[in-house]
Amino acid sequence: MNESDQKPIIILEDVCKFFGDFQALRNINLQMKKGERVVVCGPSGSGKSTMIRCINRLEEHDSGRIFVDGSELTSAVKDIDAVRREVGMVFQSFNLFPHLTVINNLMLALKLVRKAKKSKAREIAMHFLERVHIPEQADKWPSQLSGGQQQRVAIARALCMNPEVMLFDEPTSALDPEMISEVLDVMTDLANEGMTMMVITHEMGFARSIADSIVFMDYGEIIESNSPEEFFQNPRSDRTKLFLEQIL
């Protein structure tokens, strides 16, 4: 198709991050191509969340370099805002704006950041609400929706900004079991439509079905990175084997 398929859209080069004395990320090296689906897994405290949050500068990396769609991520505000427009994030705790209705949650960034007109913003917002199968909830308050519905709204909110990459930080970990599949279905649809995605999750069935590669992290390092078949069939490191035993 075009060369941008070949050039990586996200590059992490020797990235380190400290919280005081504690080293959360040790020399992370990772590359993601456009259209690729990467699933990141590992025990709690392994640095997965920290790493994904460095990509849109919710955390600041201490050393190494991060590139998103060709631009380097530095402390310059212009760069940060430019990156955040192209990178969408979905949080474990949804983080919907409680004082705005569902449709306004979606429209806010469109109006303020993309400077869209109200009618156009509403059109885009309704389109994505339909994509996540809950257009009828448009005028409700977030608190009136179930957890699964709220997370789908959160996904729609991120999609409204037309991002190049979507980051998911344990999107189903805060959900009751019966609502996990509705969210995973939406994410699977996204993957099938070709969205570039990085997903932190413990849902291994989901990982197996949509991931192009699975990255395992522990103690701030990337231990292993492989295609799903190789990862599950032939884990190379002992730590990976231990982790797989615990969750499967």
Binding site: L58, D81, M89, N95, F97, P98, H99, L108, R157, A158
Partner: peptide, 27 residues
Amino acid sequence: VDPGIIEAARALGLSSLHTFFYIRVPQ
């Protein structure tokens, strides 16, 4: 104010000023 929604606003690309008036102050 719930810090999570501030993060969501920043993640969407909202500037500090926008975040202040549209998210922080109402909450």
